[in-house]
Design a protein around this nucleic acid. Sequence first.
DNA 1: GTCTATAGAGCGATAGAC
DNA 2: GTCTATCGCTCTATAGAC
Lengths: 198, 198
Amino acid sequence: MPGGPRQRGRYHHGDLPSALLDAGLEQLATAGPAGFSVAEVARRVGVSTAAPYRHFTDRDGFLAAVAARAAERLAAAVAAAATDDDPRDRLAAAAGAYAVFVAEHRTGFDVVYAPALRAARDADLAAAGRAVMALFLDPAREIAGDGALELTEQVVALAHGYATLDAEGFLTADRVTDVPTATRARRAARALIDGAAG
Amino acid sequence: MPGGPRQRGRYHHGDLPSALLDAGLEQLATAGPAGFSVAEVARRVGVSTAAPYRHFTDRDGFLAAVAARAAERLAAAVAAAATDDDPRDRLAAAAGAYAVFVAEHRTGFDVVYAPALRAARDADLAAAGRAVMALFLDPAREIAGDGALELTEQVVALAHGYATLDAEGFLTADRVTDVPTATRARRAARALIDGAAG
DNA sequence: GTCTATAGAGCGATAGAC
DNA sequence: GTCTATCGCTCTATAGAC
């Protein structure tokens, strides 16, 4: 390897789009969607601030592509956790996994369905969004039938609330218990499901 | 009234700090805490971008003062809604009122307890935060006793999730029902409370 | 107490060299 | 396909006139 990588000087890259997406995930996780900066991502990768615009149309197009990748991972994380046979356990586990992933990666339904990103018309993002939604809707249908939409909304809101409050440091600030967020969110979801479905 | 107000030219003001706070509430509601801009608030009021710095130390100090005023109104809104004798109804009503207010004014526990604003050490903000919290904690104690903290966390997370998803347009996007957010959040909270407390 | 003016920074996006 | 360089914009915050 002659010459270290990530140097500030001249060089070019193997697969810049992929490297940009990877760095974009980190940037999204640390700065959130509002603070997401194309220039900062370019800096992380070690290319000029102009380079990303060769591969993505504009900031929102880039952010949509990053969000799509994040949403795919979110779907995978939720699917990996929601494996119980009992639909109530499965739905509750989905909520717990959602809360933790979204707190950590700052990409949930708020980002996936953000109006600004809808304009980007990213097919991957839309597909990933539907995939995540299905992981909540499917067990909700088994539990509540016609009331599945309402139950899904309730459980998603609960999980999203845990995610955002945790990301903001609210839940961990004056913590009394050391029960992890995933468990607390899952328990809360289970209580909600039991209370809603009787 | 000689000479219209809000002109771009020279003039001075009756009570600029109060006018800045009022405009700051609007700015916070529309742009959210991340997009909150001192310059934009000054423009709304019709003064120079330097004027606010005569009355507030810096951006975060100003934002903390605005958030304090918002939090006081949040406490009032929740208190006005949570009047039931039955503590379960009262807690659920608090959740519904919280969801609506926070969706509309973009000031909830995430802003009140934001690390960046803690540095401003605004006593009003801290007091308002405790006042809101008490409105959840008090009925939770009646319902759950030792489990009040856990129940409060669950209900607050649920209400906050409704608020953020509604603010992001997620709940209203492909709405099937026309039941208002306040009612849906309250119902969800009631189900959660019943499920948690048996 | 409010103004004008400005410094200094960051970002989005484009033009043109290589 | 990546670079350098740059424009135009917005923002925070300060200095000094009035």
